[in-house]
Amino acid sequence: MDSAELTLLLTSEGLTLLDSLPEYSAAHAVQQVAALRKAGHSPELVAAVLTQSRLRAKARSKFGAFADRLLYTQAALEQATRLKVAALHAGRYRDAGVSRVADLGCGIGADALALAALDIPVVGVERDEVTAALATYNLASFPNAEVVLGDAERFDLAGVDAVYLDPARRTSGTANTTRLTRPEDYSPSVDFAFGLAERMPTGVKLGPGFDRSLIPAAAEAQWVSVDGQVVEMGLWFGSLARGGIRRSALVVSDTGIAELSAAEDSTDAEVRALGDYVYEPDGAVIRARLIGALAGTLGAGMLSRDIAYLTGDELVETPFASAFRVRERLPASETQLKKALRERRIGTLEIKKRGTDVDPAALRTRLGLKGPESATLILTRVGGAHEALLVDRVTTG
């Protein structure tokens, strides 16, 4: 989106037209364009509202029904914090008792929205003109929120007693951006963010794969997964960090929110013999290096050293791992495995792997599966040796 499209969109005609559109469907996009052009709308306005309609449909995975109240750019939506997670971020600021927050690099304003909704005054700073205008629109219903067009690293923090930063990890622009791999290229820079953290309460959102060696010792590092996908690592400083916690895994799902935390990385559990159950820790637990802490709650041990699978003899329900009941150990060689699966009439097979160089999709094709039965196959190492475990995913309710 450019400034011309934005000007067309932010008119009474543009916003009314956008809100009148049916739910976006790629299959019907051509017909929608034709119908809107026939109704007398300009090609530029049609393109602008259909782009927003498409982005709103995509945004529902992050914002739910609230998605239809916001405006987006493609790039800003990709980095925007999910509404559930933004609400948890805002809760930290509320609990810390801060009076005004600067959201430096606010994007379309997702985190600023959550802060304002908790009656925390917030000023969002955004250097991209189009994105800043959309953030202003998105925050318009909150009198305690404002957006400033400017450079986050040069913003005057007078009157602000806490900051939040979600550094841009993609090249500048509103679409067709590319991912930045070096933290020094982020905007605002990581060094700038960590410098602020030395003098005031600061929250920094980073990618889950951020280099752990760069995490400051004073930070509380929290990895967050939503519906099984690790979406971010948050670093919290000053009064936003909790006492005695330096590592945590936050798991958000339809069934609720659960957290596993510790004062430091946990030591892996001892390797033990294969039990009746195998546990696959949530990605946030793995990233936080809390597999050993999880093993303690499950009465489980490592399936093999340095492999993120646990095993135990009892089924223990946990939000921090998926559980699988072991049916049997199958031959690891592909020829014997193919024969064994055919004998068991398994036609539908979920393939999971750790510690082995296998392409599950290619293997599934080569196995030539046939039959009415279904199962899960775990290809991994057990006590250091490659094995194939035929298991059933345990569902709890």
Score class of each variant (00 low, 15 high):
Phe155Met: 09
Arg169Tyr: 01
Phe155Pro: 06
Asn176Glu: 13
Thr177Leu: 10
Ser141Asp: 14
Thr136Arg: 11
Asp166Ile: 00
Pro143Trp: 03
Thr174Leu: 03
Gly173Gln: 02
Ala158Gln: 15
Ala175Leu: 13
Leu157Val: 11
Asp166Tyr: 01
Ala140Thr: 06
Thr171Lys: 03
Val148Lys: 13
Arg154Ser: 14
Pro167Tyr: 00
Gly159Met: 07
Leu149Phe: 09
Ala152Gly: 11
Ser141Trp: 15
Val130Ser: 15
Ala140Met: 10
Asp161Arg: 06
Tyr164Pro: 01
Val148Thr: 09
Tyr164Met: 13
Thr177Asp: 02
Arg179Ser: 04
Ala162Met: 07
Ala175Pro: 05
Ser172Ile: 15
Asn138His: 02
Ala145Glu: 02
Asn144Ile: 10
Asp161Phe: 11
Asp151Leu: 03
Val148Trp: 12
Ala132Ser: 11
Ala132His: 06
Phe155Asn: 08
Thr131Ile: 05
Asn176Pro: 10
Thr171Trp: 11
Ser172Asn: 11
Tyr164Arg: 06
Leu134His: 01
Gly173Val: 02
Asn138Arg: 04
Val148Gln: 12
Asp128Pro: 02
Arg169Glu: 00
Val147Gly: 03
Val130Gln: 08
Leu134Val: 14
Ser172Trp: 14
Leu165Trp: 04
Ala132Phe: 05
Asp156Thr: 11
Asn138Phe: 02
Glu129Asp: 12
Ala135Asp: 01
Ala158Glu: 14
Ala168Phe: 00
Ala145Trp: 01
Asn144Tyr: 06
Leu139Cys: 07
Val130Trp: 07
Asn176Leu: 12
Thr174Trp: 04
Tyr137Trp: 06
Glu146Asn: 08
Ala152Asn: 06
Val160Trp: 10
Val160Phe: 14
Ala140Ile: 09
Leu157Ala: 14
Val163Arg: 00
Glu146Ala: 15
Val163Asn: 12
Asp161Asn: 07
Asn144Thr: 08
Asp151Trp: 11
Leu139Asp: 02
Ala132Pro: 05
Thr131His: 00
Ala168Trp: 00
Ala133Asp: 14
